[in-house]
């Protein structure tokens, strides 16, 4: 298999890499670019642990080929905090104990950020349906919903 050269933008920074034609964006992020914040829980789009945004859309990076990143804008968990200033969602997840083991947390944070950009004042039900593709086995989701709502309220200036 001949490798494909790809130029892309991740968290605002230019990146260039070579990848195999059948290599997923998740594998590229984790194995070639040392961006291991996106996790592989299933590799089939069923758990959401590998969530990133691709040209502003929330996607599972396990369901995107690395080659498709050509010319794209990608955001990952590593780009969520502004330097040492945590994003309100990140802060509220810590304050509300919205993580136990933390493996699903990067994906849920990326997904929640994408929700709040689209809908700054979601209902609990809207948060739950938006996050239905992000499995969490530890928390029962309760504190995740509470943390997203607390962050949303802060971001609205409420």
């Amino acid at each position: 298999m001949k490798s494909i050269p790809v130029s892309t933008t991740i968290n605002g920074d230019p990146y260039e890499f070579l990848c195999a034609p059948d290599e997923t964006l998740l594998d590229v992020l984790r194995n070639r670019l040392s961006l291991t914040g996106a996790k592989e829980g299933c590799g089939t789009g069923d758990c959401g642990a590998c969530s990133v945004t691709l040209n502003g859309r929330l996607v599972c990076s396990c369901l995107v080929l690395g080659a498709e990143a050509q010319g794209a804008e990608i955001s990952t968990i590593e780009g969520m905090a502004d330097g040492d200033e945590l994003h309100p969602l990140q802060r509220h997840f810590i304050d509300h104990a919205a993580l136990q083991c933390g493996i699903c947390t990067p994906g849920i944070l990326v997904a929640a950020k994408s929700l709040l950009e689209k809908n700054p004042a979601p209902t609990d039900e809207e948060v739950r349906y938006w996050l239905a593709g992000n499995l969490c086995r530890c928390t029962g989701y309760d504190k995740i919903i509470a943390a997203v709502q607390a962050a949303a309220a802060e971001m609205r200036g409420a």
Binding site: G45, G48, L54, C60, A132
Partner: peptide, 9 residues
């Protein structure tokens, strides 16, 4: 079909 993530694709 699928999740929010899948809907994006």
């Amino acid at each position: 079909i699928g999740s929010t993530q899948v809907q994006g694709r």
